[in-house]
Design a protein around this nucleic acid. Structure first.
Lengths: 200, 200
DNA sequence: TAGTTATTTGACGCTGACGTCAAAAAACTA
DNA sequence: TAGTTTTTTGACGTCAGCGTCAAATAACTA
């Protein structure tokens, strides 16, 4: 026996470095050298773990979306009432502000889809988790009587996720005509319109 | 006097070439050489008209958004009833399908905002035109009695545009879980919920 | 045709990215 | 310490992008 295998740890360190570097400078001009430098290694070392930048970015995409969804689901799970859950889900789903670099990156990854099957799959998985989160809250609310949603649940969920995506995109794209507060209020208003009693 | 100045025509030809080439291969790997080749010129000639690729892309961004908005507004203007107008606005606002390259490009431009003041401004102008289009239809519908929108008009308009943006993004990003038909139906359902009688 | 201005080319030098790979260094075991 | 495996480095060659610019070409006028 000899030097132990630490591939797993290194790989996740590199994914972390990729997320940070991509959040900072965007995907457009990101290079292997940038990520390696951020990780405190050389390009050669990075290539020892990943075939190329694309392979690393797929992992970063996966890690980013999972972290986002896991975090939100855990926040929601700690709350009791559907109304609280809905408020928390909305808040956790929106970026913290125009400078939320990680959230910006997640939407930037969407454009790697359509060019890569792997990114395609990740985008779809993210979408499924987003819809699952809101759908569960809606169903629980309807079941407990907290909500009285008369509209089609599938469509209501779709629209809720769509609002979240659009407002998030506008905020991180620097459209100053849309603020986080406005987005949250607009989403809550929509929820009210379809039958969620969030203020009670 | 001597050879006449044809800068304007050439510039718009180059913008056109940039739109086509960017639609085809995306912004990520677009180079001056690519655009020049598409226009049937050399890099040098292109640089005679634009300082660099960024300057050209700003013009392409402007041209792309204006074309999109102008086209939709002209389609809407030809119709009579608010219900017809709303249906047309929704249809013209969504991509024709996952392969609608121009629409994809428009959303890709959003990520050049936040890094460039000029693109920032263009994104905001696009947003203002989108909201103006829907707001006018809503107001006309309310005035004529065709619609009975009780919700806050600003918020309703915001949400309508948000739905358009999100579904468009999902469609061009290749999320096969969202189809053009589903998006249109979901947007119409939302419009009904806030008080638009589109089926009557 | 000669003069004038507008347009376009193509070569030059620079920079930075990429993938490969042999060799060095590090971490561990017996 | 010597041996073994993992990890990392750094250099090499290639390629493509960029901006500059002097020279060539095109389109027009007098």
């Amino acid at each position: 026996m000899a030097r132990p295998n630490t591939q797993e740890r290194r790989r996740s360190e590199l994914v972390e470095a990729a997320l940070k570097e991509a959040s900072t400078q965007g995907l457009r001009s990101l290079s292997l050298t940038d990520v390696a430098k951020r990780a405190g290694l050389t390009r050669g070392a990075l290539l020892y773990y990943f075939d190329d930048l694309d392979a690393l970015l797929v992992e970063a995409h996966r890690a980013g979306t999972e972290r986002f969804c896991d975090h939100r689901d855990s926040v929601v799970a700690e709350l009791e009432s559907p109304a609280e859950k809905l408020r928390a889900a909305i808040a956790a789903g929106l970026p913290s502000g125009p400078d939320d670099a990680l959230m910006r990156l997640l939407y930037e990854f969407d454009f790697m889809a359509g060019q890569s099957e792997l990114h395609d799959t990740l985008v779809q998985q993210m979408y499924l988790r987003q819809t699952a989160t809101y759908r569960a809250i809606f169903e629980e609310g309807n079941a407990s009587g907290a909500f009285a949603i008369s509209a089609d649940l599938d469509q209501a969920t779709m629209n809720m996720v769509a609002l979240e995506d659009a407002y998030s995109l506008h905020i991180v794209a620097g459209n100053r005509l849309v603020t986080v507060d406005m987005a949250r209020e607009a989403m809550l208003a929509f929820a009210e319109q379809i039958g969620c009693r969030t203020s009670a």
